[in-house]
Computed example of a mutant assay.
Amino acid sequence: MLDTGDEAPDFTAPLANSDVETFTLSDHLEEAPIVLAFFPAAFTGTCTTEMCTFRDQLSNFEDVGATVYGISVDLPFTLNEFRRQNDLNFGLISDERRELIDAYDVETTFSPLDMRVAQRSVFVVDGNGTVTYVWRGSAKDEPDYDAVREAAAEARR
């Protein structure tokens, strides 16, 4: 299980940022600390609340030099619509192939449909590509945004 002190698994995946681009983690380490916020599915209750809270608190993360990305198994086109409808001001990474939920060990199953989705979780990655903070929750949990911000501030030092 991926934990603090481990090297963050590098990846390349589609980035929904009103367009669709390719995002490779190792190419963005200069944006560190990087907050990777995994969420189960766009347009669902707690996921929308979580991503909108990151939106509303984005300046708190930017104040400590952190860059936030949401990650779900939704298609990038779905994520762009989710961004648009919720006025999200940060990029969303599509793990449509479910490679990231495997690499970060955050796969869970959405029971009614037996779908593999991301467990709600947050990782902070420093400029060396090291995981400096890990939080894993249940589908209804939200992260402690202040703790994530503090971890990002620590990762910057």
Rank of each mutant, 00 (worst) to 15 (best):
E96S: 14
E96L: 15
Y133I: 01
E142Y: 05
D74F: 01
Y133C: 04
S94V: 04
T67L: 11
G129T: 09
N86G: 04
P33E: 08
V124C: 13
F90M: 10
C52K: 11
D19T: 13
R157A: 14
P112Q: 09
A152Y: 03
F38H: 00
E81R: 09
N60K: 09
T44V: 08
D146Q: 13
T22N: 15
V124K: 04
E50W: 02
F77I: 15
I101C: 05
D74T: 05
P40R: 01
T49H: 07
T108R: 03
L92S: 04
F11M: 09
Q85C: 15
D95P: 06
A16F: 03
R157Q: 15
T53G: 02
D19K: 11
V73F: 01
T4S: 08
R156H: 15
S111P: 15
E50Y: 03
N128G: 09
E107L: 10
N89E: 10
I34V: 10
A32V: 08
D56M: 08
P76R: 04
N17K: 15
V125H: 00
T132Q: 07
R149L: 06
D141A: 02
R83T: 00
S138Q: 10
L29Y: 07
Q57H: 14
L25A: 07
L92A: 05
C52S: 11
L92N: 03
G137D: 04
T67N: 14
A13G: 08
E31L: 12
R83G: 01
F77Y: 08
D10Q: 08
A151P: 02
N60H: 10
S94A: 10
T12R: 14
E30Q: 15
A155Y: 02
Y145D: 06
E99Q: 10
F43M: 09
G70L: 03
D114I: 12
L36R: 01
R116H: 08
D3N: 14
P76L: 08
K140V: 13
A42E: 03
K140L: 07
K140C: 06
M115S: 15
T44I: 11
E30S: 12
L79S: 04
A147I: 12
T12E: 14
V73Y: 00
E50N: 07
F11D: 03
F43Q: 08
F123E: 04
D87S: 12
T130F: 07
C52P: 04
A153K: 13
I101V: 07
E154C: 13
R84P: 02
G91F: 06
V148F: 00
E142N: 09
A147T: 13
A139V: 10
W135T: 01
A118E: 01
V73C: 03
E150R: 11
R116T: 15
R149A: 06
T4D: 09
T53W: 04
I34T: 04
Y145E: 06
P76T: 13
N17W: 07
P143M: 07
A147Y: 12
F90H: 05
A8Q: 05
P112I: 02
F82V: 02
S18P: 06
V73H: 00
T24L: 12
Q57E: 11
